[in-house]
Simulated assay, not measured.
Amino acid sequence: MTQSIHIVDAFTEQLFAGNPAAVVIRNEWYSDDLMQKIASENNLAETAFLVQHNYAEYAIRWFSPLTEIDFCGHATLAASSVIFETQPTLTRLRFKTSSVGDLIIEKKPDGKISMTFPIRTLESPEAIPHALLQALPEPPVKILRSVQAWHAIYDNEQAIYNCQPDLEQLKQLAPLDLVVSAPAENYDFVSRYFWPANGGDEDPVTGSIHASLAPWWAKQLGKSNLLAHQASRRGGTLYCEVQENNVIVSGYTKKYLTGEIIL
């Protein structure tokens, strides 16, 4: 048996940049065990599995090489681009998820794809784990927490580029990950994302974390439209619009591969 698979670089207009995700579209789910094995074999930050409900509605699930993830932006963007490519008259999609509700996806005339995410609130923690403090190479000006990750906020972007946290210490924070962020000269803010307990050392571009980053920076900067850059080695650009209850995260994609899995 063979299964079609696509690999797409998300949040970039250039090949070999952004965050690569694998996309598998079916009429029914594989077993959880098989989906995890496929994701582990792909060894990308995320593999998105989709089951089509109708012309413009799909259920979506995301797997890292280690585990199923409850929310992934870049693989959602990659999956959307595959569907829009195969159905060129389609401009709007609905993805059904078990953890973050329905995600509305739209294709813009310039090729950019926008995704409507629910806002994820940042809160000041009552206590900060010792492992987090030990992991950070220099103290941030603020530490916050969302349901997804610890947020270490710095006041200069060079600290983000230089950041090399202790990954063994970060593993102790599971199931939470770590994002570091700061205001930037050529962008509204920059960030990096580390997740050794859930997927890998560093995620190249993390769409989901901007559901918390963009609203927080919107309040700090007094603006609702923000240009964000994830400063990993591959790098990626995210266009964010903060609304009352949602964050619209948009980006471009570049197709890398279409092939077949032999099962």
Rank of each mutant, 00 (worst) to 15 (best):
E126Q: 14
Y161E: 13
N186M: 12
R233I: 10
L227C: 11
E168Y: 10
F95T: 03
A17P: 00
F189Q: 03
V179I: 13
D9F: 03
D155Q: 15
V82S: 01
P165D: 07
S64Q: 06
E28N: 14
I143C: 01
S31T: 15
K171H: 10
L178I: 04
A79N: 05
A78Y: 00
G111H: 10
A79E: 05
S181D: 07
I261C: 09
Y252S: 04
L132G: 00
V249R: 00
D177I: 06
K254N: 10
V8A: 06
E157I: 11
K223A: 14
P65G: 13
C240L: 08
A135F: 03
T253P: 07
L103M: 08
A228W: 01
Y252P: 01
S232Y: 03
I69P: 04
V179S: 07
I69E: 00
Q14W: 10
R61P: 00
T47A: 09
I209R: 01
D155M: 11
E13S: 12
R61H: 06
V242Q: 01
A211W: 01
G222R: 08
E244P: 02
I25V: 15
P215Q: 00
D177C: 11
S31H: 11
Q220R: 13
A48Y: 03
F194G: 03
F11G: 00
P175M: 12
H6W: 15
K254W: 05
T86K: 15
Y187H: 13
P88F: 05
Y252W: 14
I261M: 12
L103H: 02
I119A: 00
P140S: 09
R94G: 00
S232V: 11
V100T: 14
C163D: 07
I83V: 15
Y252I: 07
Q169C: 14
K96F: 06
S64H: 02
G200W: 11
Q220W: 08
F95A: 05
N43F: 14
S80P: 04
V247M: 05
F16V: 11
G73A: 09
D32F: 12
N245I: 09
V51R: 04
D102V: 07
I7T: 15
K112W: 06
T2F: 10
H74K: 10
I209Q: 05
V242G: 00
L238Q: 07
P88R: 13
L176E: 04
L15G: 14
Y55L: 11
